[in-house]
C-alpha cells in the first residue's frame, strides 16, 4: 500500500507539473498584450512601460517566466491582480469557500440521491424502475445552465421557496442560498450515478456470490448492502468521483447563473478583463483540485477492490 501511494504521489506531481505548464503557456499564447491591459489602452511614457515590464518579468524568455511563476506559486504567491492590485492568493482564498461549499453540497446530492434512486430502480422492477429510468434519461441530458434556469423559474420565482441570487450570511442562510445552485450542478450527475447504480446493482444481484449469500439465509437488506451494493461501489464511486471533478469546472457556469461570489465566477470575469495573473492562478488551483480528486478516486477504488493491483505494474 505504501509503495502504491508513493507511486500515485509521484504521478500526481508529474501531472501537476505538466498541467501548470499548460496553464501558463495557454495564457501566454492567448491574444492580447498584458501591457495594453496594464495601461488600460492609454499610451504610457517609456519609463512607466519599463517599470511594468520589470515588475511582470515581461522581457524575460518564456521558460524563465514560467519557472519564476511556478516557483512563486509553490510558495503560495500567485502574483498581483492587474485590475484590483491585490494578491491573487488572497483574492482566491476569499472566494474559494463558496466554491468548495457548492461542490461538496452538490457531491452529497449526487452520491446520496444518485445511489438511492439507482437502488430503488434496481430492486423495484416495474413502475418504480420505469419512472426512474425515464426521468434520469431526461435529466442526464440537461446541462447545468439549463437546470439553473429551470430551478430559478420554478423554486425561486414561482414557488418562492428558495432564494435565486447571492451568497447569504450565516450557516442556514448560506445553505439556503446554495441549495438551488447545488441542485443545478448536481442534476445531470445524479441522474448518471443513478443509472450506473441501477445497472451495476442489478448485475451484482444476479451474480453467483449473491446467490450464495441468499442461500445462507442472510436477511435481504444485508445481502443488498454487504454484497450487491458493496461490489457495485467501485464503478459507482469512479463515476461519482469523475463527475465531482468535472463540477470543479462547471461550477463557473452555475456561480455566474446564481450570482455567487465563487472562484468560477471570478475566473470568468477575470478572463473577460484580461487579468492574466488571476486567470493563471485560478486555473492552477482548479486544475490542481481536479487532479487531486481524480487521484483520490483511484486510491479509493484500490481500497474498495482488493483485486486492483497495488504494487508493481498493472
Amino acid at each position: 500500500m505504501a509503495a502504491y501511494l508513493m507511486r500515485r504521489a509521484l504521478m500526481l506531481a508529474a501531472t501537476l507539473l505538466v498541467s501548470s505548464f499548460v496553464v501558463f503557456a495557454g495564457l501566454s499564447l492567448a491574444p492580447g498584450n498584458p501591457l495594453a491591459t496594464l495601461s488600460g489602452g492609454r499610451s504610457l511614457p517609456p519609463e512607466s512601460v519599463a517599470v511594468l515590464v520589470q515588475r511582470y518579468h515581461l522581457n524575460e524568455p518564456f521558460l524563465v517566466q514560467y519557472v519564476t511563476w511556478l516557483g512563486n506559486a509553490v510558495r503560495g504567491d500567485l502574483g498581483v491582480s492587474i485590475i484590483l492590485r491585490q494578491d491573487v492568493s488572497d483574492l482566491i482564498s476569499s472566494r474559494s469557500g463558496t466554491t468548495i461549499a457548492l461542490i461538496l453540497y452538490a457531491a452529497l446530492i449526487v452520491l446520496v440521491g444518485g445511489v438511492a434512486l439507482g437502488l430503488l430502480a434496481a430492486l423495484r422492477p416495474g413502475i418504480v424502475d420505469a419512472i426512474v429510468v425515464m426521468s434520469t434519461a431526461l435529466v442526464v441530458a440537461v446541462p447545468p445552465f439549463v437546470a439553473a434556469i429551470v430551478l430559478i423559474g420554478v423554486f425561486a420565482v414561482r414557488l418562492r421557496w428558495l432564494p435565486a441570487l447571492g451568497n447569504g450570511t450565516g450557516l442556514w442562510e448560506g445553505m439556503r442560498h446554495l441549495t438551488l445552485p447545488a441542485l443545478a450542478l448536481a442534476a445531470a450527475a445524479t441522474a448518471a450515478v443513478a443509472r450506473v447504480t441501477r445497472t451495476t446493482v442489478r448485475q451484482e444481484m444476479g451474480r453467483e456470490h449473491v446467490q450464495t449469500a441468499i442461500s445462507r439465509g442472510l436477511p435481504y437488506p444485508a445481502v443488498v448492502r454487504r454484497h450487491a451494493l458493496r461490489n457495485a461501489a467501485v464503478p459507482i464511486s469512479t463515476l461519482a468521483g469523475m463527475t465531482v471533478a468535472s463540477m470543479i469546472a462547471l461550477a463557473a457556469v452555475v456561480e455566474r447563473a446564481f450570482s455567487l461570489n465563487g472562484l468560477g465566477a471570478y475566473l470568468v470575469s477575470a478572463a473577460l478583463s484580461k487579468d492574466f495573473a488571476v486567470v493563471q492562478g485560478i486555473s492552477l488551483v482548479l486544475v490542481t483540485a481536479f487532479v487531486l480528486v481524480n487521484t483520490l478516486v483511484d486510491v479509493g477504488a484500490a481500497l474498495l477492490d482488493p483485486r486492483i493491483k497495488l504494487g508493481g505494474r498493472a
Binding site: R207, E208, H209, Q211, T212, A213, S215, R216, R226, H227, R230, N231, V234, L304, D305, P306, R307
Partner: peptide, 15 residues
C-alpha cells in the same frame, strides 16, 4: 447450506 460447484464465483471477491 449449499456447497456450490465454482467457489471462485460463489464467494464474494471483495470481502
Amino acid at each position: 447450506p449449499m456447497v456450490f460447484q465454482d467457489p471462485r464465483a460463489h464467494i464474494n471477491p471483495v470481502r
